[in-house]
Amino acid sequence: TFTSYQLEELEKVFQKTHYPDVYAREQLAMRTDLTEARVQVWFQNRRA
Protein backbone atom coordinates (compact mmCIF):
# COMPACT_ATOMS: atom_id res chain seq x y z
CA THR A 1 0.00 0.00 0.00
CA PHE A 2 1.04 3.60 -0.61
CA THR A 3 0.83 6.65 1.60
CA SER A 4 -1.30 9.58 0.44
CA TYR A 5 1.92 11.54 -0.17
CA GLN A 6 3.33 8.78 -2.37
CA LEU A 7 0.09 8.52 -4.35
CA GLU A 8 -0.02 12.28 -4.77
CA GLU A 9 3.53 12.33 -6.15
CA LEU A 10 2.88 9.35 -8.43
CA GLU A 11 -0.33 10.90 -9.78
CA LYS A 12 1.42 14.24 -10.34
CA VAL A 13 3.99 12.60 -12.61
CA PHE A 14 1.31 10.45 -14.27
CA GLN A 15 -0.58 13.61 -15.27
CA LYS A 16 2.53 14.83 -17.09
CA THR A 17 3.49 11.52 -18.70
CA HIS A 18 2.11 8.00 -18.72
CA TYR A 19 5.56 6.69 -19.66
CA PRO A 20 8.24 8.23 -17.41
CA ASP A 21 11.80 7.37 -18.40
CA VAL A 22 14.18 5.59 -16.03
CA TYR A 23 15.62 8.91 -14.81
CA ALA A 24 12.16 10.25 -13.95
CA ARG A 25 11.25 6.99 -12.22
CA GLU A 26 14.43 7.02 -10.14
CA GLN A 27 13.86 10.64 -9.10
CA LEU A 28 10.31 9.76 -8.12
CA ALA A 29 11.48 6.64 -6.26
CA MET A 30 13.94 8.71 -4.22
CA ARG A 31 11.33 11.38 -3.48
CA THR A 32 8.74 8.84 -2.34
CA ASP A 33 11.11 6.39 -0.62
CA LEU A 34 9.95 3.58 -2.93
CA THR A 35 12.05 1.35 -5.16
CA GLU A 36 12.26 2.18 -8.85
CA ALA A 37 10.71 -1.23 -9.56
CA ARG A 38 7.67 -0.39 -7.39
CA VAL A 39 7.29 2.91 -9.25
CA GLN A 40 7.50 1.11 -12.60
CA VAL A 41 4.84 -1.43 -11.59
CA TRP A 42 2.57 1.34 -10.30
CA PHE A 43 2.75 3.06 -13.70
CA GLN A 44 2.06 -0.21 -15.53
CA ASN A 45 -1.00 -0.83 -13.36
CA ARG A 46 -2.15 2.78 -13.61
CA ARG A 47 -2.02 2.64 -17.42
CA ALA A 48 -3.91 -0.66 -17.54
Rank of each mutant, 00 (worst) to 15 (best):
T17V: 06
T35M: 04
V39S: 09
V39D: 00
L34W: 13
P20V: 03
T32I: 15
Q44D: 09
L10K: 15
E26W: 13
R25P: 02
R46K: 09
T32G: 02
E9D: 02
K12C: 06
S4T: 13
L34N: 02
R47S: 04
R46E: 03
Q40F: 11
Q6R: 01
R31I: 12
T3Y: 05
T32F: 08
L7P: 01
Q40E: 15
F43R: 01
K12S: 08
K12P: 01
D33Y: 07
L28V: 07
R47Q: 05
L7M: 08
L7N: 11
E36Y: 06
T17I: 06
Q6K: 01
V13W: 07
S4I: 13
V41P: 01
Q15R: 11
A24K: 05
E9R: 03
K16M: 14
T32P: 00
T17G: 06
F2S: 15
V39Q: 01
A29K: 05
P20F: 03
M30A: 11
L10V: 03
T17D: 11
V41L: 15
L7C: 06
T1F: 11
L28K: 00
A48S: 09
T17K: 04
T17M: 09
N45M: 14
E9F: 05
W42C: 02
A24E: 15
E11W: 04
T3F: 05
M30K: 14
T32M: 09
K12W: 06
T17P: 00
Q44T: 08
Q27L: 12
E26H: 12
D33C: 14
S4V: 13
L28D: 01
T1P: 12
P20L: 06
Y5M: 08
E9K: 03
R38Q: 15
M30I: 12
L10I: 01
P20R: 01
A29V: 07
A37D: 12
L7W: 09
K16W: 12
D21S: 11
K16Q: 13
W42S: 15
R38C: 14
V41A: 15
T17S: 12
Y19C: 08
T17Q: 08
L7K: 05
T32L: 15
Q27P: 14
L10G: 00
W42F: 03
E8V: 09
M30N: 12
T32R: 00
L34H: 01
A29Q: 06
Y19E: 05
R47T: 04
R38S: 12
H18T: 07
A24S: 08
T32Q: 02
T3H: 06
K12V: 06
L28G: 00
M30P: 00
A29W: 04
E8Y: 10
V39C: 01
K16H: 09
F43G: 00
A37P: 07
L28N: 00
R25I: 15
T32Y: 05
A24Y: 06
Y19F: 12
F2W: 08
E36N: 06
T1G: 13
E36S: 07
R38D: 15
Q6I: 04
Y23S: 11
Q40R: 14
R25G: 02
V13C: 07
L28F: 07
T35W: 03
Q15T: 07
V22C: 11
T1W: 13
L10M: 13
K12F: 05
L28A: 02
D33S: 12
L34D: 01
F14E: 00
V13G: 04
L34G: 01
Y19Q: 14
N45R: 14
E8D: 15
N45T: 08
Q6M: 05
V39E: 00
V13S: 06
A37S: 09
Q44M: 12
A48P: 04
W42K: 00
S4W: 11
Q40I: 09
Q15V: 07
N45F: 11
L34V: 04
A37Y: 12
Y19R: 04
R46A: 07
H18W: 14
H18R: 14
E11I: 10
V41Y: 14
V41T: 13
E36Q: 07
Q15P: 00
A48F: 08
T1E: 14
L7F: 04
R38T: 15
